[in-house]
Simulated assay, not measured.
Amino acid sequence: MNSNFEYYKIFYYVAKYGNLTRAANVMRTSQPAITRTIHNLENELGCRLFIRSKKGVELTPEGRMFYDYVSAGCAQFFRGESELSSMVSLEYGTIYISATETALHCYLFQAMEEFNRKYTNVHFKILNNSTKESIQALREGKVDVAVVSAPFHIVKPLKMMKVCTYHNVLIGGRRFRNLEGRKIPIRELSECPWISLTSESITRKFLNEYFETHGLIFAPAVELATTDMILPAVRHNLGIGFIPEEFASGDVKAGEVFEIEMEEKLPERDITLVYDSEYPRSIAAKAFQKYLESRYI
């Protein structure tokens, strides 16, 4: 038998309402189309399912038996549709994000908290990756959006949008207290041991270019894989290093490290939202992106 689900669905509504016209209205089709479908289904099953009555149509004994099974199947199908709709809605939706540590701590956690105050049942699934890995996860359809540090290059269908800026501060531990209390030129600071991320990172490339603009070569004494490792390395006096202000504020207040003032201003950096313009995203993901856009304006 080759009956498709649409046949069973029409049979379900005709049996439920006992009226061809009402079933046609629910299915948003014509009564003749409903009649043809019932006849086709009866021919395929090899038995009558309905008989006409003064009120409309009534199920035959075979039809009543068949309806018991079809109604149970339709109930499961409709329940599944309803639950799926809730999952992708703003009631119980899930948003998949890949983000850098800096984006998380300087922007995303706060934005997620604010969004959840309004949409309390929306869930977030977060991947903590580098900028490069986050963009790759987006290309592969593993996440709805990527929130990363700029600058970087993307190609269509990916699009990007700046959502905030952040400021890096230069910090040192007690070994470098002689640098405290005055503005120091970058040329003098370049002679100190530096702590930074590895050469593959966007942040490292940013610092390389910054030093080059001042005729210097950036050669860190310690290279680390993640931003959150810089602060403890500075705290243990392995060198001085740049870190987002949000990462260092607690330790600066506690006196564990101090901020080194520079004569030359380090440019602010952007945090960018990246998304695939051709990838179908959930209602919740679209709403979160719209919220991020409005938050920056």
Rank of each mutant, 00 (worst) to 15 (best):
1 M>L: 05
2 N>Q: 12
3 S>W: 04
4 N>L: 06
5 F>T: 13
11 F>K: 01
12 Y>P: 12
20 L>K: 05
23 A>M: 09
24 A>Y: 05
29 T>G: 05
30 S>G: 01
32 P>I: 05
33 A>P: 04
37 T>H: 01
37 T>W: 01
40 N>H: 06
42 E>A: 03
42 E>G: 07
45 L>Q: 02
49 L>A: 10
49 L>R: 11
50 F>Y: 02
54 K>Q: 14
56 G>K: 10
57 V>G: 01
58 E>S: 15
59 L>M: 05
59 L>H: 08
62 E>F: 06
63 G>S: 03
66 F>L: 15
69 Y>T: 14
71 S>P: 01
80 G>A: 11
89 S>Q: 04
90 L>P: 07
91 E>H: 04
92 Y>G: 10
93 G>C: 09
96 Y>F: 14
100 T>E: 06
101 E>H: 07
102 T>K: 02
104 L>Y: 01
106 C>D: 08
107 Y>E: 06
110 Q>N: 03
113 E>T: 13
113 E>S: 15
117 R>M: 15
118 K>R: 14
126 I>K: 15
134 S>T: 12
134 S>L: 08
134 S>W: 09
138 L>A: 01
140 E>F: 11
140 E>Y: 02
142 K>R: 12
143 V>M: 08
143 V>R: 05
143 V>C: 06
147 V>P: 08
153 H>L: 14
156 K>G: 10
158 L>M: 08
160 M>Q: 14
163 V>C: 00
165 T>M: 11
168 N>R: 11
171 I>A: 02
186 I>P: 09
187 R>G: 03
188 E>I: 13
188 E>A: 08
189 L>W: 00
192 C>V: 10
193 P>R: 05
196 S>M: 09
198 T>Q: 12
204 R>G: 05
204 R>N: 12
207 L>E: 08
208 N>G: 07
208 N>T: 12
210 Y>H: 10
211 F>W: 11
213 T>A: 00
214 H>I: 04
214 H>C: 01
217 I>S: 12
217 I>E: 10
218 F>D: 09
219 A>K: 15
220 P>D: 06
222 V>D: 02
225 A>M: 13
227 T>A: 04
230 I>N: 11
230 I>A: 06
232 P>C: 02
233 A>E: 03
235 R>E: 00
235 R>M: 07
240 I>N: 02
241 G>C: 03
244 P>V: 10
245 E>W: 03
246 E>R: 07
247 F>C: 11
248 A>E: 06
248 A>R: 05
253 K>W: 04
254 A>N: 04
256 E>T: 00
257 V>H: 00
259 E>K: 09
261 E>A: 14
267 P>S: 06
269 R>W: 03
271 I>V: 07
274 V>K: 04
276 D>F: 08
278 E>I: 04
281 R>F: 02
285 A>E: 00
285 A>M: 00
286 K>A: 11
287 A>G: 03
287 A>H: 04
289 Q>G: 11
294 S>F: 01
296 Y>M: 13
